[in-house]
């Protein structure tokens, strides 16, 4: 799939959702989506198959999301993304009012959210997440376990199959 517009159509939701779950707001998610696809153009790489292309875009989205959250500006300006109170973001409010599960995920500490998303939404294995986030597999495993513990407390009656 060399057609850029097709790539955007196919993966923009994927990139945006990774950004949103980490940052918790549409503005940053859109910025990150934009940056990821600009980076994609700049990289000008060819990919062995669609899995590689998707992996590249996911990695770029994860990295861009982490950078955004960690940025000095965010830290100093009080843009604490763990605290979603008072947000006027439309996506956030839609989630808050219509989704108990996603809303609970958004309230997790940042470092857990991405792991949860990649594992449960992108169906990635712990090893794949480890490789993609450059984090030790045991760390990924413990983050996922901890996230599930927190979610179990908040989401009574919801089963975690895995």
């Amino acid at each position: 799939m060399d057609n850029f517009e097709e790539v955007m159509r196919k993966y923009s939701d994927t990139v945006y959702r990774i950004a949103f779950v980490r940052t918790g707001n549409s503005h940053d998610a859109e910025d990150i989506t934009q940056d990821v696809f600009l980076s994609y153009i700049r990289a000008g790489k060819t990919y062995a198959d669609e899995e590689h292309r998707k992996a590249w875009l996911i990695r770029a989205a994860v990295n861009a999301s982490i950078n955004t959250v960690r940025s000095a500006w965010k830290r100093h300006s009080g843009g604490q993304l763990n605290e979603n109170e008072g947000r006027t973001d439309e996506n956030f409010h839609r989630i808050e009012t219509r989704s108990v599960v996603y809303s609970a995920v958004l309230k997790l500490p940042e470092k857990y959210r991405t792991v949860v998303h990649l594992f449960y939404y992108e169906d990635m294995t712990l090893a794949q997440i480890s490789q993609l986030t450059k984090t030790r597999e045991n760390t990924v495993k413990s983050r996922l376990r901890r996230a599930k513990d927190i979610l179990r407390e908040k989401l009574e009656g919801v089963d975690f199959d895995v």
Partner: peptide, 21 residues
């Protein structure tokens, strides 16, 4: 069950169509 619910909820999260265009 969590997985299904979470995937379903992600359907609520999507970039604005005008933004993508």
């Amino acid at each position: 069950m969590f997985k299904e619910l979470y995937k379903e909820d992600n359907g609520l999260i999507a970039p604005d169509a005008a933004f993508i265009e």
